[in-house]
């Protein structure tokens, strides 16, 4: 299967700091690709570059054969972004958010009405569509944050820690949504701190630290490949968590 997203030797420097160092990977259609790493590993910087918010210092990436450097406007039409922050206006309602972002995507009015209804039902906010975001719970805001990233039927969706600070019920609903989105043929780049989430959701995982890729593959592939070097004990901690800690170490990354 041809890769939908190709990232080749992507590097981003901020002065002397190398935030992303020569990262390469590919993501297939319908694939959920996990990007794991401790704080400051460079996960969000990779997403910022792939969403054309930051320009890479060197390297290149293509999304559906469109270059993020040469054709950023074309890339922006086919990607969806769910930022780590709750990127919403407290004094707008859910429906107003979707209509506002939908109009930026130039979606015709009738189609936009239908799309809003579909997405609000998907994230189960239809009944609360006319409430101001400022009175929403954390989980509701996270779900609307996701809906806003899906308005243009993206081919590639980037989700930066979408379950941060939500209750188990909302998290379950978000997982359910992610699988539904995947079924539409969307490739998903997923970053998280919750390793059990990555274990449950991701088809393949790229573990990064200090801007460098440490390991890339499915969880089983990684465990098999690194079997000789890493000892996985039958403890309560998940297999991925043990693998992650042994690869990245226990040093705090504040």
């Amino acid at each position: 299967m041809a890769s939908l997203i190709k990232v080749k030797n992507l590097t981003k420097k901020f002065g002397d700091l190398v935030a992303v160092n020569n990262i390469s990977f590919e993501i297939q259609e319908k694939e959920i690709f996990g990007l794991l790493g401790p704080n400051g590993a460079g996960k969000t910087t990779i997403i910022n570059m792939l969403s054309c918010y930051l320009e890479p210092t060197s390297g290149e990436a293509w999304i559906a054969d469109k270059s993020i450097i040469k054709e950023p406007q074309e890339v922006k039409k086919i990607i969806g972004l769910v930022p780590q922050e709750i990127a919403l206006y407290p004094n707008l309602t859910a429906i107003e958010h979707l209509k506002f972002f939908g109009r930026i995507h130039n979606i015709p009015s009738k189609k936009l009405e239908e799309k809003c209804k579909e997405l609000l039902n998907l994230v189960r906010l239809y009944e609360r569509r006319n409430d101001l975001v400022k009175i929403y719970s954390g989980g509701m805001k996270r779900r609307l944050n996701i809906a806003c990233g899906l308005l243009n039927d993206p081919k590639f969706l980037m989700m930066d820690e979408p379950t941060l600070g939500v209750d188990p019920q909302s998290r379950e609903l978000i997982f359910e949504n992610i699988f539904k989105i995947r079924e539409r043929g969307v490739a998903i780049l997923y970053t998280t701190h919750y390793l059990e989430e990555a274990e449950r959701l991701c088809d393949r995982i790229n573990i990064i630290d200090e801007g460098k890729s440490l390991a890339l593959g499915s969880l089983d592939e990684l465990l098999t490949r690194l079997e000789a070097k890493i000892e996985i004990k039958p403890t309560k901690a998940g297999r991925l968590e043990q693998l992650f800690i042994q690869l990245t170490g226990k040093r705090l990354r504040d």
Binding site: C52, Y53, K76, L81, P83, I86, L88, F101, I104, H105
Partner: peptide
């Protein structure tokens, strides 16, 4: 800028 709205908007085709 701080709440990520800017980032979201700049990732849109405008």
């Amino acid at each position: 800028k701080e709440t990520g709205i800017f980032k979201r908007i700049l990732s849109l085709p405008i």
